[in-house]
């Protein structure tokens, strides 16, 4: 079987399984979010009511969109403060067998924002920075709550289409409780148990030490008595040469974090190497399950949308647009990676795939996964807001690296993150019908709601906030000393590293071109601000659109209504997404991966 066939079969297997689950899971999510009785709600009902009682919440009392938005913002601020406090105080708190030092203030700020925004950008190395308590009570808890926040926003936007002539769009506390309790928690428990079966670790042990056969000489960072790295005048870590035969094997409660990391499209790894670490992703099967878990809820939400608006064809149409875009870009990444580095041939290196070798570009990839599963993982993690990696994106070919970058820049809607994917593509759908309305001279409408000036102003805020954050952030990064100091590969690739960093932060993805040294005061602050604005400004706009639509009357379908479930609408939607993505980012992409591609094939 050739490499291309292997890639196609792997993609079909995973996407086929996910799409097969979309209908039952999508129906279940609709039942949960609309308060219908399910097996889980009958089991967890008393606990759900206890949560409301403890929080002093009346679940029957619905909110206006602005009340909902402020509740959401305060809830997430509280989450950020908890993570920040846990990191700063972890040395004095339990479950820290390695006695890891308090995290620095700038890194703690960055990580706190990263995990409440579902970005999970990691400037730190988990195994040498975070105590078990911080990982579990801080980071893992936020993996649930940030995914539940995204799902809540999606449901509000969908309610905007269902309801009419009302200013009430739901209760944030109810939405976030139900989605955590009845969807994310049960799925994560099941996946964690399966991953443990594959060899993912789950314990509270101190780190193990193994004796290696060969001696290893390495540069060891110097630390002060508190365990903090000592830096020179330029901010670089001071190191000393050391030799060892001891290898430290990190331990910890990994599986419980790993499952929600994928299912919640969070992506923050327990270890620095993320899903390329054998304790996070040990086997071919665990790799397939992790990719499927990333896709599971975002694709199912298209069916949830169709079911809630009473026409499942609407959901299938959105899914079709997502699949077309994803398939083309994922295949591009694979072809580029399997094509490999053209300079290798000049040095007599055989890069052809044979029965004995994978061929292509294997730099930065795990041999147990190979090119097909690594390219597919890279595309999956950036087509959603996940950001987990099973290989190093910095080592991909220029076009291979362009694909994850562009998938994020499209807005992460193929299928996008938990909740974020469906609400992002719905806003592109609103924009699409608006453009179509302008072309044919009719008042645009979508699912029985007129799309008017207010919705378009809000959609503009939604769509333009992220490119503004990404491009302004990148511009600041390339002209300031702090920004340039983190680049390990100057030139076009270095530009791509900064662009990737801000793209990942602004779109709340969290994956990184590993070449960027981001644990500096500049990047911790700049990316922290980018993550917050890239998350909550679009959320506010989406909630406002939901509120605005809910307040309108429903208009009947007539012969002049454009069908929004057929090939014409799907093409229009794909065209709108591509047009916005290309217009926003082509100049920046031309300076990074595109230049690098031409330089590589010119022999530089």
């Amino acid at each position: 079987m050739d490499a291309g066939t292997r890639f196609a079969l792997l993609a079909l297997l995973i996407l086929g399984a996910v799409i097969a689950c979309a209908k039952p899971l999508g129906k279940y999510i609709a039942d949960v979010m609309e308060g219908r009785a399910t097996f889980a709600s009958r089991l967890g009902g008393p606990f759900e009511r206890l949560i409301y009682r403890l929080c002093g919440t009346d679940p029957a009392q619905e909110m206006t969109w602005s009340h909902y938005a402020i509740a959401l913002l305060l809830f997430n601020l509280l989450g950020a403060l908890v993570i920040y406090g846990l990191q700063r105080l972890q040395l004095w708190l339990p479950l820290n067998p390695q006695h890891l030092a308090a995290v620095s203030a700038d890194s703690a700020f960055n990580t706190a924002v990263a995990f409440v925004t579902n970005t999970d950008w990691q400037g730190y190395s988990g195994e040498s920075t975070m105590s078990y308590l911080t990982q579990m009570a801080g980071l893992t808890v936020q993996n649930y709550l940030s995914a539940a926040t995204g799902l809540s926003v999606a449901v509000v936007l969908i309610r905007g289409f269902i309801r009419h002539s009302t200013d009430r769009i739901g209760n944030f506390w109810v939405d976030v409780t139900r989605s955590s309790l009845y969807l994310l928690l049960p799925l994560s428990i099941v996946l964690a148990l399966v991953l443990v079966g594959q060899g993912v670790i789950q314990n509270f042990e101190s780190y193990e030490t193994a004796t290696t056969i060969e001696k290893l000489t390495f540069d060891n960072p110097k630390t002060d008595p508190d365990g903090n790295a000592i830096k020179d005048d330029k901010g670089n870590a001071v190191t000393e040469s050391a030799t060892t035969q001891a290898q430290t094997l990190p331990m910890g409660p990994v599986a419980s974090q790993e499952s929600i990391k994928e299912l919640g499209t969070n992506g923050g790894g327990f270890f620095n190497a993320n899903s390329s670490h054998p304790y996070e992703n040990p086997t071919t099967l665990s790799n397939v399950l992790e990719i499927a878990a990333i896709f599971l809820i975002p694709f199912a939400l298209t069916y949830t949308f169709g079911r809630m608006v009473g026409d499942t064809r609407q959901g299938w149409a959105l899914m079709a647009a997502m699949l077309v875009l994803f398939a083309v870009l994922a295949a591009t990444a694979f072809v580029s990676e399997q094509g490999g580095n053209p300079l290798f041939a000049q040095h007599g290196v055989d890069s052809q795939a044979t029965a004995m070798q994978s061929g292509g570009n294997m730099e930065g990839k795990e041999t147990r996964f190979g090119i097909a599963a690594s390219a597919l993982f890279a595309a999956a993690t950036t087509a959603t807001s996940c950001g987990a990696v099973n290989g190093m994106h910095d080592s991909m070919t220029p076009i291979g690296g362009f694909v994850p970058l562009f998938l994020m820049q499209l807005g992460e809607l193929t299928p996008g993150g938990v909740g974020t994917g469906i609400y992002t593509i719905l806003i592109f759908a609103i924009l699409g019908v608006f453009i179509a309305g302008l072309m044919i001279g009719r008042t645009p409408e979508y699912l029985g709601k007129k799309i008017q000036a207010r919705e378009m102003k809000l959609a503009s805020i939604f769509i333009l906030t992220t490119p503004m954050v990404v491009l302004v952030g990148t511009a600041i990064g390339v002209v300031t000393l702090g920004g340039k100091a983190g680049v390990s590969n100057p030139g076009a690739h270095g530009f791509s590293e900064i662009l990737y960093g801000f793209t990942s932060a602004g779109n709340n993805n969290g994956s990184a071109f590993a070449g960027l040294s981001a644990n500096t005061e500049f990047y911790n602050l700049a990316l922290g601000i980018a993550m917050w604005l890239g998350r909550f400004w679009p959320i506010v706009a989406a909630l406002a659109i939901g509120g605005s639509l809910a307040s309108k009357k429903r208009i009947p379908v007539t012969e002049g209504t454009m069908p929004t479930h057929g090939p014409l609408f799907i093409s229009l939607l794909i065209g709108t997404i591509l047009l916005i993505g290309v217009l926003n980012y082509v100049p920046a992409l031309a300076l990074g991966p595109v230049v690098e591609h031409f330089m590589l094939f010119q022999g530089h």
């Binding site: 602005s66 913002l73 403060l81 203030a105 007129k450 008017q452 102003k457 604005l533 400004w537 605005s548």
Partner: peptide, 30 residues
């Protein structure tokens, strides 16, 4: 340092609440 970063966090929150209040002033269509 904690004061600086917590202040930035609250400033981001206030800027976002400002956006909520700003959007409420955008006129309604009927």
């Amino acid at each position: 340092m904690d004061v600086i970063y917590l202040t930035i966090l609250f400033a981001l929150l206030l800027a976002t609440i400002g956006l909520v209040l700003g959007i409420e002033r955008i006129g309604e269509d009927r």
